[in-house]
Design a protein around this nucleic acid. Structure first.
Length: 176
DNA sequence: CCCTGATTCGC
DNA sequence: GCGAATCAGG
């Protein structure tokens, strides 16, 4: 059921943000999903955006040369927003059906109150996905992430379950 | 050949 | 309004 996708307020807002951030049309299209870069560019123009003068490369020769050249300003404030990553390192996708864990532990550790949409997600925030990505209700954890990692302490523990458990399993299995 | 945005035009 | 096809530059 992915029929209802179109230029909703949210999608337009995201489009604006990414475009003004200097993201290319193809990148934006990939993040939005369900649209091609042509669609993105078309929309950008219809929105009156597109006024993104770079080096005045295209038809500068045959057109009027701008006296002032504006720089994209944003060096790299937002390094490749998420989305793609939410599907990558994902150990297990915590949709509505969350792994059966002690409710007490979950409730105490998950900072549910600060969930954010992709719009407000920043580099320093936990990218742990909450809910179904195909719905408008989709959110990210949003808690302060561990420096260098995409998740907060709690979700990092769930995401990266290294040697500890293996070791335990090996023992339990009577391994050597 | 890969990418970029810009424009046109049938729907 | 939308976006595929096309154009044109890097």
């Amino acid at each position: 059921m992915e029929a209802g996708l179109s230029w909703t307020d949210e999608r337009v807002a995201l489009l604006r943000r990414l475009w003004e951030d200097g993201q290319s049309a193809s990148k934006i299209a990939a993040q939005l999903g369900g649209v091609t870069r042509n669609a993105v560019i078309g929309k950008v123009h219809r929105l009156g955006l597109g006024g993104r003068v770079k080096g005045a490369e295209v038809d500068a020769a045959s057109a009027v040369k701008p006296a002032e050249v504006e720089k994209p300003v944003a060096a790299a404030p937002i390094p490749e927003l998420v989305v793609a990553e939410t599907h990558r390192p994902a150990p297990e996708f915590p949709t509505a059906a969350v792994p059966a864990r002690p409710a007490a532990t979950e409730a105490a550790a998950i900072p549910v109150s600060q969930r954010v949409t992709i719009m407000d997600l920043r580099e320093s925030m936990c990218r742990w996905p909450l809910g179904d990505p195909t719905t408008p209700e989709f959110r990210f954890c949003g808690a302060r992430s561990i420096t260098g990692l995409p998740y907060c302490t709690h979700h990092a523990e769930i995401a990266y379950q290294p040697a500890a458990e293996r070791k335990r399993d090996r023992r339990a299995a009577g391994f050597r």
